[in-house]
Structure formats: C-alpha cells, structure tokens
Computed example of a mutant assay.
Amino acid sequence: MEGKASDATERRYEAAVKRAAALSYKYAPASDLLPEAEISQLIERLKVIGGEQGAQASINAALLGRLDKPPVTLQKAFDVIRDEVHATYLQAKDEEG
C-alpha cells in the first residue's frame, strides 16, 4: 500500500516540476521559495496563477511550491541498484571476457 501512495506522491511532484517549467519557472518547495525569493518574484508567480484558467490546483502546486520532494523509498533504491548499477556491472563483466 505504501508503494502506491509513494508512487502517486512522486508523480504529483514530478508533474508540479514539469508544470512550473512549462510556465517558465523553476520549481522550488515553498520552504525554499519564500526565504530566497524577492517579493517581485512571488508577485509574478501569483499573477500567473490568477491569469491561468483550469487546472488551478496543479498551477498553484507548481508555482507556490506546495509539494515537497518525496523521500526515496527502499524499494526505489533497490530498483536503481538492480536496474542501473548491477546492469552496468554485468555489462562490464561481459566486456572483460
């Protein structure tokens, strides 16, 4: 059950990052955005949100940093090791002869 929730959280986060990029902004979580951004940058983001029609929740999440980056799960780490690291290791072994 945790894997499905984690996958959904990751998909929402990735969608927010892509949505921000599509609107010519770099995604930043609110905790990073607020202390670092100038007031004029925040106002620009709010103007974009106010001017967009439809999909309002995804735009808010993307431009106001409402989603934190999901944590890496043990399953994800295992998948990367299995699919990328181990595959590279096996390929190197094959090339050695």
Rank of each mutant, 00 (worst) to 15 (best):
K47T: 02
S58F: 08
R19E: 12
E96C: 03
K47D: 14
A15K: 01
Q91W: 12
A21V: 06
T73W: 03
A8Y: 09
S58E: 13
N60K: 11
A16K: 00
R19C: 08
D79A: 10
A62R: 01
Y89D: 07
G65V: 05
G97N: 03
Q75P: 02
R82S: 06
Q91F: 05
E2D: 11
H86I: 13
L34I: 13
G3C: 09
R66M: 15
G97S: 14
Q56Y: 04
L67V: 02
A15W: 00
A5T: 07
A55M: 08
A57Q: 10
A22I: 03
Q56E: 08
K93R: 13
D94R: 14
K69L: 06
R66K: 14
P70R: 03
L64T: 01
A21I: 02
E44A: 03
K47Y: 09
K47G: 07
A55L: 11
S31F: 07
E14P: 00
L90S: 10
I43G: 06
T9R: 15
S6M: 15
L90W: 10
A28L: 08
E95I: 12
S24P: 11
E44D: 14
V48M: 15
D7A: 15
D32I: 05
G50H: 05
H86K: 14
Q56G: 03
A55D: 11
A5R: 10
V72N: 11
S24I: 12
P29Q: 07
Y27R: 08
A55H: 08
K4E: 14
A20L: 01
T88A: 09
D83V: 01
G54V: 04
S24G: 08
K69V: 02
L74S: 06
D94E: 15
A16W: 00
V72Y: 02
E10S: 13
A92Y: 13
R66E: 11
D79Q: 07
V72W: 09
L64P: 04
D79R: 10
E52P: 02
K4C: 14
A92H: 15
V48Y: 00
D32K: 13
R66A: 05
L90K: 15
A37T: 09
I49T: 06
R12T: 02
A57H: 10
P71W: 09
